[in-house]
Write a protein that binds this DNA or RNA. Sequence first.
DNA 1: TTTTAAATAATAGTATAACTATCATAATAA
DNA 2: TTATTATGATAGTTATACTATTATTTAAAA
Lengths: 227, 227
Amino acid sequence: MAIEIKISLNDGIYLRDPQDSALGRNIIKFSILLIEDIGFEAFNFKKLAQEMNSTEASIYRYFENKHLLLIYLVSWYWEWVAYLIKINTLNIDEPKRKLEIIINSFVSASVDNPSTDFVDESKLHSVIIAEGMKAYRTKEVDDENGKGFFKNYKQLINNVAGVIMEINPTFEYPYALASNLFEMSNNHIYFAKHLPKLTDIQVGKNKYSEVEKMLNYFAAKLLGYEI
Amino acid sequence: MAIEIKISLNDGIYLRDPQDSALGRNIIKFSILLIEDIGFEAFNFKKLAQEMNSTEASIYRYFENKHLLLIYLVSWYWEWVAYLIKINTLNIDEPKRKLEIIINSFVSASVDNPSTDFVDESKLHSVIIAEGMKAYRTKEVDDENGKGFFKNYKQLINNVAGVIMEINPTFEYPYALASNLFEMSNNHIYFAKHLPKLTDIQVGKNKYSEVEKMLNYFAAKLLGYEI
DNA sequence: TTTTAAATAATAGTATAACTATCATAATAA
DNA sequence: TTATTATGATAGTTATACTATTATTTAAAA
């Protein structure tokens, strides 16, 4: 029996909570698959409706537009990573070990760890790597940030920054390092796949161990400890 | 008298070279202003035509679509930064000092250093910070990379990686550090302006000295030297 | 169980975006 | 001066991003 987690997200993002109905869950499920397949620019609600045997109008009852659907997916991902970090660091006291687990969670949020049957975390991770930043690189960012749409991300970074400060209380850039580790993780997986001249690491199919090693190295050097 | 630099960009990006005509230069000039103003998603050729008192059809004779125009702007920016780095490191031998100049160029490519009268480098920098990554986070990236559309970026990173290897020949991630310094620079300027909880630094109006300080600190720590 | 309400489907319609085509006119080059 | 090319003016096509309406199914309440 699968444990069902109800992920808690800002209800301003959606018109009707997609977790509460079969149609809603289908929207999430198929949007991840379709965005991964054709990319966010080519993705639209008409194609999504076709893919899931529903109608455009039905999808519009859940999300105002595809931009807000992307924010939903991205928020889901952030919550999912936060959850992974939480359960995997529950019994850990050593902050350096905690950061190692955090980095592992950034890199391998993909693997073998399903939260629900309708979200394929591995594909969601692919979507985040390729499209995630488009959720907050828009002219609406200030308005949407004011509405709390990005609080999951800020919360996640806040938690990571806390661990960084535990490791080295005099380090001047805990928040910047935290967000950079997350962004760098996604960036360099993307670079390795598409623009390899921009990185030194290589990745295999869902094998991101070199990225993990690099992030651990960066963190250790910056915070002044040996791995 | 202003020195006119003809920037050399991959001619697959455009249909007709915008540098070669008044209309073309206007397209570049006004697209920067308009994208900065309304954002890339809301930007289109019809609005651009209105803004510059021309027609949609005329603009389409220069660029296939707005995506390729963005690639053009981004490539211009990369070339511009590379040029800045080149002239400012001409007489510098010390690689640490070179990296300092590189970081300064990433951060303040904006200020007081016009290359041409039709490109406002400061506004272009703003556009790159907010929209730059959208040029290469698309489903077409592999195809376009194959056509050489991103070679300006790869070249720039290659040069920076060269300096990094001069400083520390045993450092394992010269390309990743180079691209990360560039991406981090734009990211944290953006974060400081729009999502300040994701960073530790603050920025003023075109005053990015804290970003510069942070990047210098990161570089020094990672490469093992004192600033 | 029926009746009522709510969710979804089916269909149609509008406005705008993203182009393409055609022809006239202006500027430039041969 | 004529031929060529660039631009402008205008119109048209297809696709996207929605909104509206009504019918039908499903679920909840009485």
